[in-house]
């Protein structure tokens, strides 16, 4: 089984406590997200809207490449998926 890591920003503490890194399993990027939401169901509403799209001011990177559209792709062992809040707000 392929294992990847998801890194989360501190602002998501109300949903996941002090968890900043989650090891996820799956053969593809979307399967990795499914595993993330299985382990931390409270995260889904914060990252995705009702229609399943990434929220407008949230960024997602897969091995350093932006993937705001959450396009599925093959997952490699040791891959890193990063969620960040955009540099916006007040």
């Amino acid at each position: 089984m392929i294992t990847a890591a998801v890194r989360l920003p501190r602002l998501l503490e109300p949903a996941v406590g002090d968890v900043r890194r989650v090891n996820v399993e799956g053969g593809t990027f979307r399967q990795a997200l499914d595993d993330l939401f299985r382990q931390h169901p409270a995260l889904r509403v914060h990252l995705l809207d009702e229609q399943g799209f990434l929220r407008p001011h949230v960024l997602c990177f897969h091995n350093g490449e932006p993937n705001r559209d959450l396009i599925d792709s093959a997952l490699g062992d040791g891959d890193e998926i990063v969620f960040l809040q955009a540099v916006s707000g007040g």
């Binding site: 602002l11 949903a15 509403v45 914060h46 990252l47 809207d49 001011h57 809040q85 916006s88």
Partner: peptide, 11 residues
Amino acid sequence: IGSNWFGASVH
């Protein structure tokens, strides 16, 4: 709660 980035939730 809600934020400028992440969705709203009940706690």
